[in-house]
């Protein structure tokens, strides 16, 4: 299959070559030539040496380099994988620590907020109580003042009436005026 077209090519010039060459035949088939058999013996020796040199020295050397490269790459990969695992673990630790800190901070803020709210509420309640007390106080005072004012009102009215009456008629009867004022104001 590999030689068919080439054999035609091979045959063509052979057919074209006249005379001497064909008559002499192929040197490869001249088995009387001691050199022909000699090359087979030499070939066996040389090939044997070649095979031994390859299998003992040359090929194991290539194999060693390839193996050392494979193990080197493998160990480098292992180191890289280990480093990655460590980095992953550190990153996870960091994440959880951050999460924890955030939780703590939130709780803290909440507590402070609650405290502030409670204290503000207490403060407001106290203020309201004080204000209420003051309001009640003031109301009492107002009531007192009003009552005072109301009680002094009849006196003022009586004295004013007495003055008016004495101006008008020159005399006065305190009793009468007082009762009259009281009647009117009642």
């Amino acid at each position: 299959m590999y030689r068919t077209p080439r054999l035609f090519l091979f045959a063509a010039p052979l057919a074209a070559v006249p005379g001497r060459a064909v008559a002499a035949g192929m040197p490869q088939l001249n088995f009387h030539d001691p050199l022909l058999i000699g090359q087979v013996v030499w070939g066996a020796v040389i090939f044997g040496g070649f095979y031994l040199a390859l299998s003992r020295f040359a090929l194991p050397r290539v194999e060693r380099v390839l193996t050392s490269r494979r193990t080197r790459i493998q160990s480098d990969l292992d180191i890289a994988r280990k480093a990655k695992a460590e980095a992953d673990r550190a990153s996870a630790e960091l994440l959880s620590a951050r999460h924890e800190a955030a939780e703590q901070a939130r709780a803290h803020v909440e507590r402070i907020q609650n405290e502030a709210r409670a204290s503000a509420d207490a403060h407001a309640a106290e203020t309201a109580k004080r204000l209420e007390a003051e309001i009640a106080n003031a109301e009492t005072r107002i009531t007192q003042s009003r009552e005072q004012a109301l009680s002094s009102l009849s006196e003022i009215a009586t004295s004013t009436t007495q003055d008016l009456v004495s101006r008008l008629i020159g005399t006065q009867d305190e009793q009468t005026v007082a009762s009259a004022v009281k009647r009117v104001s009642a």
Binding site: Q39, W42, G43, I46, F47, V62
Partner: peptide, 21 residues
């Protein structure tokens, strides 16, 4: 009985071994 054929066998083997070495 050493012709140019074994000579080139030697050269070929040497070339391959030197190439690898």
């Amino acid at each position: 009985r050493f012709s140019q054929s074994p000579l080139f066998m030697l050269i070929a083997a040497a070339v391959v071994l030197v190439f690898l070495y």
